[in-house]
Design a protein around this nucleic acid. Sequence first.
DNA 1: TTATCTGCAAACGCTTTGCATCGGA
DNA 2: TCCGATGCAAAGCGTTTGCAGATAA
Lengths: 141, 141
Amino acid sequence: MTGNLRSAIEDAFERVSLRSTPQRYAVLEYLIRRPEHPTADQIFSAINASDPRASRATVYNNLHALIGAGLVREVVLEAGPVRYDANIERHHHFVCERCGRLDDIAYADVPRISRRRIGSRVIRDYEIVFRGLCERCSQRP
Amino acid sequence: MTGNLRSAIEDAFERVSLRSTPQRYAVLEYLIRRPEHPTADQIFSAINASDPRASRATVYNNLHALIGAGLVREVVLEAGPVRYDANIERHHHFVCERCGRLDDIAYADVPRISRRRIGSRVIRDYEIVFRGLCERCSQRP
DNA sequence: TTATCTGCAAACGCTTTGCATCGGA
DNA sequence: TCCGATGCAAAGCGTTTGCAGATAA
């Protein structure tokens, strides 16, 4: 389905009026293929393992452009480098306390919290951060 | 109740076998008095406004010591400097999308999610991050 | 053609570290 | 007394910025 991915990415650039460059394409493609929430540095290393190359500054430039366009999100759940996520649907997260793995959890997989207010605060959205042991780590104690 | 706070802090140091120094005391006292999750730099500035003084390195040293002793927690919900919280009970958080304010939300104020597993993952804990408008910001649109 | 993007290198903000000195128990 | 704490200054890491040259549309 590589062809579909390519045109999906090109269509997305079109839709949000972002120029398609090899570097930008490589960043978004990598994020879509790798849902483990890579850091900027991991993206930089991965897309430079093969062509096309992109400098660190360009990786950051493009991450910000993609975030601005609503195609990518920052994920900040722990200290350290920011992680990035091409899944822009509403979803929750799971952090493995042993290996640091970070998974998306489908919104539909978790009971909803229907609160619209807490005290005088207006709730517009919420996200649940689960912590525990991932599949792998739970199998070898 | 300042007397009570003082002895509560001294007792806590005793209990976790941390030496009581003016700098360490100042850091923990500030975090307890200010539940708005200050950054290391805000703590540094605040406790140096009056005596006793503490260097930046000492503020970080003590934050780590207090975290290691279980008296303080890191809070990382957004990019930027880490924020610190002396509330070590289970609780949720609220982030104001307009002003950045960060509030604790009592665990009891929110319906519980009783999931013990999601797929093959073992859930040991979870935290909800609410986003919206704080009391102040919701009153002036 | 031209507005946008790239990439280098330097600067930045936050945090950690090495080490000599100090001080709490 | 002596182990741990302090504080300076320098280094570290992740990220941003300025700008000259390149490129997508």
